[in-house]
């Protein structure tokens, strides 16, 4: 398998929230096909009965205390990071 089709590429770009130009989509499609062909080397490994590893040290979920933490960052400072701000809110185009 591993040949990425045009429609798969379009779907992937949508999932990734990337508006790609035609030329770039074409070159990325070629790269992805190559990378997936390389990844296909894993086909030769037998993993019957093997459990997956999602994190290396078998850590349990760590809960933190239910208390307010002061990161030393103010709302004003955070809002300064946004491109468009009005009345203490971040501005985005109309959605509905």
């Amino acid at each position: 398998m591993s040949e990425i089709t045009d429609s798969e590429m379009k779907h992937l770009a949508e999932l990734s929230n990337l508006f790609l130009g035609d030329k770039e989509a074409k070159s990325l499609k070629r790269d992805l096909t190559r990378i997936l062909a390389y990844i296909d080397e894993l086909d030769e490994v037998d993993v019957t009965g093997v459990e997956p590893t999602y994190q290396v040290f078998d850590m349990e979920t760590v809960w933190r205390e239910d208390e307010e933490i002061d990161y030393g960052v103010s709302r004003v400072e955070l809002l300064e990071l946004a491109e468009q701000v009005k009345d203490n809110s971040v501005v985005v185009p109309k959605v509905l």
Binding site: L18, L20, E24, L28, L32
Partner: peptide
């Protein structure tokens, strides 16, 4: 879509696309 297209380098896009695949 446009901010991510403009803000990421080709290798960033490759990895995001492979990841979502």
């Amino acid at each position: 879509g446009h901010s991510r297209d403009e803000g990421f380098m080709p290798e960033n896009k490759r990895r995001v696309l492979i990841g979502n695949f």
